[in-house]
């Protein structure tokens, strides 16, 4: 029988890499929408970690949790875009550097 090409450990490493890309994007990028996308990347990295760990541990908890997280991410997307839109109506920009009424 052939060894599977990717083991749960590989997926865990991949999820850590994706999480770091998201965290870095949040810190480096200044476009509100891109920053928000970075956060979504981090949440999905956590999802991948849950699935990989569920596979390794052999219990279903991790896979169920992913559904909850997807719901949370969807609700967060709805609220995040609404909040950014409300800001955009007063000041048409999505650049974090250009919204400076409060010291960032």
């Amino acid at each position: 029988m052939m060894e599977p090409l990717a083991t749960p450990a590989h997926y865990l490493v991949l999820s850590a890499i994706i999480f770091c890309i998201g965290a870095l994007g949040m810190v480096v990028r200044r476009n509100l929408i891109v920053m928000f996308m970075s956060v979504e990347l981090m949440l999905n990295a956590a999802n991948l970690a849950f699935i990989a760990l569920a596979n390794r541990l052999g219990n279903m908890d991790g896979q169920t949790i992913v559904f909850f997280v997807m719901t949370v991410a969807a609700a967060e997307a709805a609220i995040g875009l609404a909040v950014i839109l409300a800001l955009f109506r007063n000041k048409p920009t999505v650049q974090a550097d250009e919204i400076g009424l409060l010291k960032w």
Partner: peptide, 27 residues
């Protein structure tokens, strides 16, 4: 508006950290 955007972005960022932490504790 600005307060909401800042709170949201940083709050969601923190939630993602917490979630990944929960994933590792689960592991």
């Amino acid at each position: 508006n600005e307060a909401a955007v800042k709170y949201f972005l940083l709050g969601a960022f923190a939630s993602a950290f917490m979630l990944y932490g929960i994933a590792l504790v689960y592991g």
